[in-house]
């Protein structure tokens, strides 16, 4: 998409004699070009790039934990759940070179906890996002395409889910079931997928559904399945990707709230770190015991905003009308 490259030189040539293989190659090349053009727009947004860098740093943190545990950290001291810093006389103890972020009230290393939790936050966020968007895209496309009764049923279901207060519902569910990270991701995903995100994607699907190329596909002999999955959903994917980012934010936030309230069956997470500080009574004296609260709190804030801002930058890629043309 026009950053100076000529249309004619850009169109890939194809050796017609090789059939499937060559077709796949050409498609791969075109996908790569789309990606490259999208990236060119994405990097124009400084905040988007910064946020992506933040996410990358968190990803590195997630990978570094098992490496550190296997090399320099001894498990009996540095294990995020069962470790105990024997070299300290009182806990929580402030940061020093051995424990860069100090220890918590139970004598466990905060940095180790922080790094260990990062991985679960990613798993949670991405699972929830995939489930949400997978469901919401299908529901939106199906509701928009069929209309009528199917549409009414799916949209009333969405209204019902939106009307439920999310966090309170999760609290009730956590009382009924032993919620671990995976189930939490699944529940958040299903609620989002059949709820608000479905409505947004359906409204987009409606505007696609009335395009003449949908009729053209039907006139070509395409069935319902073909039209939905080949024409409607691919045109929804950019918006889906966007809402994936926003869902990650929501999922991490929900996990933090539930963990803080002590309602999740999780060994360690950022929310649990703050929960531990709270049960020890250190939350109100936060200024004196900042290392108990700030690392986890800042991580939650940073990662949530990073995913959200990447979403906003992607919005510009996906939605050319938002692009600024003054540069």
């Amino acid at each position: 998409m026009g950053e100076g490259t000529s249309l004619f030189e850009d169109a890939p040539e194809i050796d017609l004699s090789r059939g499937r293989l060559d077709l796949a190659l050409v498609r791969l090349r075109m996908a790569w070009r789309t990606l490259r053009d999208g990236w060119a727009v994405f990097v124009e947004s400084r905040i988007g790039v910064l946020s992506l860098a933040i996410i990358a740093i968190f990803a590195l943190m997630a990978f570094s934990h098992p490496i550190l545990m296997a090399t320099v950290w001894t498990p009996d001291v540095y294990d995020p759940v069962t470790g105990y810093a024997f070299d300290r006389f009182e806990h929580p103890s402030p940061p020093d070179w051995r424990h860069p972020l100090g220890t918590d009230s139970l004598g466990r290393d905060i940095l180790s906890q922080l790094l260990f939790s990062t991985k679960s936050e990613f798993i949670l966020g991405i699972t929830a996002a995939l489930v949400t968007v997978g469901i919401a895209t299908t529901v939106g496309a199906v509701a928009a395409y069929y209309g009528g009764l199917v549409d009414s049923l799916l949209m009333r279901l969405a209204d019902l889910i939106i009307a439920l207060p999310g966090i309170s519902l999760l609290i009730v569910l956590s009382a009924l079931f032993n919620l671990n990270l995976f189930y939490l991701a699944l529940i958040i995903g299903v609620l989002g997928g059949f709820g608000g995100t479905a409505i947004i994607l359906k409204s987009q699907a409606l505007s696609i559904r009335v395009k003449p190329y949908i009729e053209a596909a039907r006139a070509a002999g395409g069935g319902h399945f073909h039209v939905i999955f080949v024409h409607i959903i691919p045109n929804l994917l950019p918006l889906s990707l966007l809402y994936m980012m926003f869902t990650v934010t929501g999922a991490i936030f929900a996990e933090a709230v539930l963990s803080f309230l002590g309602l999740l069956d999780i060994r360690m997470s950022w929310g649990i770190m703050i929960h531990t500080a709270n049960t020890g009574g250190y939350l109100l004296a936060g200024a004196n015991y900042w290392w108990l609260i700030v690392p986890a709190g800042a991580s939650i804030t940073l990662l949530c905003s990073a995913f959200y801002l990447v979403g906003r930058a992607l919005d510009e890629v996906v939605n050319p009308r938002l692009r600024r043309h003054d540069r």
Binding site: Y213, A216, N235
Partner: peptide, 8 residues
């Protein structure tokens, strides 16, 4: 409008 913009 009668061609899917994403398809070749």
């Amino acid at each position: 409008e009668s061609m899917n913009p994403r398809r070749t």
